[in-house]
């Protein structure tokens, strides 16, 4: 699948924002006044920037308002609705906390839960797709939730929790990659099932429908840069989890270290999300003898 920058930015940055809301909703860190306001602004800012980025890949954004209508069947619609509701609830909670010095724990818990539900709805947009066997697994939502909450823990300075979450990320991400590499084969789809011609022997594409590119190839049969995938996987895990974890364990985490941790985590996150798209094989590729 095509790793569109707008989608990568959307899902990573908004994930961090909602992850931070998770902890702020729980009253962590224990701050008030302007410090609380700053934390809340960062959370709202990240989530909003991410959501705005997601509109950049729409072909016809003037109809985006209708996207709130189909919550009964569509995960994308559910995500839009959840995101807006979460921003609203969190804004009220944070405003009372920072400016009235009146933190309402119940409202905070609600905002935390809604933030996680929002991340879950985002992940289900991908996990629901049977056409992309690598995504079509319960590990997809699990990883989205882990990445969002680990980022939130780092941003809100909850380093012990962050350590646990980063450890889980290493384990489940490695598992997702290993399983994902055979997902297409295991799905049972092949060029033979796609064409129904398996009875006649081994099938291959003799001629593409057109000599040029098309939307399907650009969007769903993206194979550029896959050859670097193995290296990039190692790099992603080191930057997103291993280096931050080691810095937490081995240093007295001061402001400079926190900045390094965040930088490393975010660059690693971009690499992970790029791989998530670039390595995902859509079954339509079978009609083009590609994967």
């Amino acid at each position: 699948m095509h790793p569109a920058p707008s989608v990568i930015i959307f899902s990573t940055i908004s994930g961090l924002g909602f992850g931070l809301m998770l902890f702020l909703g729980l009253g962590l860190p224990d701050v008030s006044g302007w410090v609380a306001a700053t934390f809340a602004t960062v959370a709202l800012g990240l989530a909003t920037i991410g959501l705005l980025a997601s509109t950049f890949h729409l072909g016809n954004p003037k109809n985006a308002i209708y996207a709130f209508s189909q919550w009964q069947t569509s995960w994308l619609s559910r995500e839009g609705i959840m995101a807006v509701l979460t921003l609203a609830v969190f804004f009220i909670y944070a405003a009372l906390w920072a400016f009235m010095d009146n933190r309402i724990p119940m409202l905070g818990y609600l905002a935390s839960a809604m933030a996680m539900v929002t991340v879950f709805t985002t992940s289900m947009i991908y996990a629901q797709l049977k056409t992309v066997p690598r995504w079509n697994t319960a590990v997809t939502p699990l990883l989205f939730l882990l990445y969002a909450s680990a980022g939130g823990a780092l941003l809100s300075n909850q380093m012990t929790v962050a350590l646990v979450l980063l450890g889980l990320i290493i384990a489940f991400q490695a598992m997702a990659w290993l399983q994902g590499d055979t997902a297409l084969e295991r799905s049972g789809s092949s060029i033979e099932s796609a064409t129904g011609l398996g009875d006649l022997g081994k099938v291959r594409l003799l001629e593409k429908p057109h000599s040029g590119e098309n939307y399907l190839l650009k969007e769903m049969v993206y194979v550029v840069g896959r050859k670097h995938a193995a290296k990039l996987r190692v790099l992603a895990l080191v930057l997103v989890a291993l280096l931050p974890a080691l810095l937490i364990l081995l240093t007295d985490v001061n402001h400079v270290i926190v900045a390094i941790i965040m930088l490393s985590h975010i660059i690693g996150l971009f690499a992970q999300r790029w791989l998530f798209f670039a390595q995902a094989e859509h079954v339509v590729g079978l009609y083009y003898d590609a994967r």
């Binding site: 890949h57 789809s189 796609a194 009609y287």
Partner: peptide, 17 residues
């Protein structure tokens, strides 16, 4: 087409291109 926002998700969901 008067409602479509061009998100492309339906094309992702179709196995047949």
């Amino acid at each position: 087409e008067d409602k479509c926002m061009g998100c492309g998700l339906c094309a992702w969901a179709c196995p047949y291109g």
